[in-house]
Amino acid sequence: MIELRNVSKTFTLHNQGSAVIEVISDVSFAVAPGECVALTGASGAGKSTLMRMIYGNYLTRAGEIRIGDLDIVQAEPRDVIKLRRDVLGYVSQFLRVVPRVPTLDVVAEPLRASGVPADEAQDRAKALLTQLNIPERLWPLSPTTFSGGEQQRVNIARGFAHTYPAMLLDEPTASLDAANREVVLSLIEDAKARGAAIIGIFHDEAARTRVCDREIDVGRFTHGLAA
């Protein structure tokens, strides 16, 4: 479902003496449907960078990143947009929303975008928010004013609202208490069970062991490059 072939990435900092920073090179691996793969490596090894490249958020300098039939490295923006709407989900560490939009709508939005009727999208959003222990009185409020943990849970609810066949998870259990961590892990297990291909970054070792089938050490693609 997700396949990387000889993928490399450099940053050129034009305004800092045109410094060229090589981040990772020659990455190749594949993730099958129903499989969850963990990216590991020291901080700064390029885990998040690789994740962002797979999402199309960072440009890939060389190689191929196939998600389903689409090579995201060569794809037109509109194909990437379509892919993100229907196929590829991403739960980042940070919640980025329009101020003033109620939490319920924030969570329902990915479903609305993929054409699910408003009622159905809201029902699904309510179920997820309930599952993640976001009190109902907060649903009509914008999550911008919530605590870090609450924002993270809203973000997860939003990320799992639509049943994407491919998912990227960046520290999904960070800053969660035991109960909510358990909910997130079960959401991941459910996603695997329905056949989603998942790539995740987990600092939480127990969580990683529980949901991940394999680990890929990103450090080995950096070839001792300066981080």
């Binding site: 940053f11 305004n15 962002r52 199309g56 958020n57 960072y58 440009l59 923006p77």
Partner: peptide, 18 residues
């Protein structure tokens, strides 16, 4: 030119970076 988040998060041109 490109995806909005890509251009904003990983700008390529010197002017975009600035």
């Amino acid at each position: 030119a490109g995806l909005t988040d890509q251009v904003l998060d990983d700008p390529q041109h010197a002017y975009s970076q600035l």
